[in-house]
Design a protein around this nucleic acid. Structure first.
Lengths: 218, 218
DNA sequence: TGCAAAGCGGACCCCGGTCCGAATTATGTC
DNA sequence: GACATAATTCGGACCGGGGTCCGCTTTGCA
């Protein structure tokens, strides 16, 4: 479809390291030319500032570039597209959450029974989502990519794993998607800001849902 | 924010009749000037043709306007935005589904026990979604409006109603969202076209999920 | 037939995303 | 350490498409 012209080695797509299922969670970029790294940092700082000041979706890519003192093209080469930049802003806190449920102390991390880890996961993810809802909303990729983006895949993988332990005789892959849907920033935003539900109710609903699905009767 | 200039009666937003929870499901437009109705029909026809010919997201609004022999502005006044036009294309089949589960014969319509109606609902919705997935995908509104768009509200209202009958002691409003998430066109597309799952598996998963949630043990 | 309201259309704006010549950096060589 | 050279990056002109605006035309009604 959008393939390369014949016999031209496609020199594109550095964008961001695919950060494929990072288990070891180091700092960031593997190797990056000095100026590139500098500009990357400037861009993130500028973007964070603008977003904090005027709200995520009132910020234009050109503004970010200007505020960072670089050209527009630089932003796109580094982060791919708008979504990429916004997701980069969320990367730090997402990695913290990942670290917590992959290797942290129970009940979030290993050591607790799977159903309980699931409950803890929902609570943690929900709280993190509520923290900066607007940004998460604005960072949502277009519908076609919602499920292929790394953070989602990590979460899905984790939830599916726990489900397989808790309910071996179920389509855990699909159930995981269902569970994750209740943490979708768009849904959370709708429920809290348009229906006026308190965060507490979402947490309770998550717990209830986990109980129903894992058969952990009340 | 984007409010009207002071003391000017906002003469905007005809767009589309809000089609608020239409239970009586008549034809379409309530009252529309002759030329407007004619252009609306032309636009829908042109859009349908182009979408069928080249795929939904390869079609530009200007093209549709040109193909219908009207100006670009006309398209946007009539349908609000791109999403509105695409949703209008889906309106007919959506209304048919609504009619079926609101007033049709059991097990979809009234008469069967709620859990069974839920199972039937999922099957029906899933099949309809699969029929023209691409269009449904392209018609997806931006994340902020996914849950406020009329078709979703109708579905949610219906599912929540059935849930309240089947599991009175639960947060049925939230559970309904969870169930509906499994019918999300974006998810369906991901599972079928990127993970290669057969439609059958999605239907089975739906049934299983309903069973788990309503406690209808296998 | 005359008049107000509704509709029309295309010029216009804005912003996300692409492209390519110019400039900067890293590396191998003496 | 200085320099030549290849690889990367920079940056801003450019493009395409969604959405808006407003003067003009059409329609419906009295």
């Amino acid at each position: 479809m959008s393939a390369a012209p014949p016999s031209a080695p496609p020199p594109q797509e550095p964008v961001e390291p695919p950060q494929l299922l990072q288990l070891g969670l180091d700092d960031d970029e593997p190797c990056l030319r000095a100026d590139a790294a500098r500009n990357r940092a400037r861009l993130l700082e500028a973007a964070a500032g603008l977003v904090a000041a005027r709200g995520a979706d009132a910020v234009t890519m050109e503004e970010v570039a200007a505020a960072a003192g670089v050209g527009k093209g630089t932003v796109f080469r580094r982060f791919g597209d708008r979504t990429g930049l916004l997701m980069a802003l969320l990367d730090h806190s997402e990695k913290k959450l990942q670290a917590a449920f992959l290797g942290g102390p129970p009940p979030l991390g290993p050591g607790a029974p799977p159903a309980e880890r699931l409950r803890a996961f929902g609570r943690a993810a929900l709280r993190r989502t509520v923290e900066d809802l607007e940004l998460q909303l604005a960072a949502q990729p277009d519908p076609g990519r919602r499920f292929t983006v790394p953070p989602y895949r990590v979460r899905h993988h984790h939830v599916a794993l726990l489900l397989r332990q808790a309910v071996p005789d179920a389509d855990c892959d699909l159930l995981a998607h269902t569970l994750l849907a209740q943490l979708d920033p768009a849904l959370v935003h709708h429920l809290m800001h348009q229906c006026g539900m308190p965060a507490r109710r979402l947490e309770d609903a998550w717990t209830d849902l986990v109980d129903r699905i894992t058969g952990t009767a009340a």
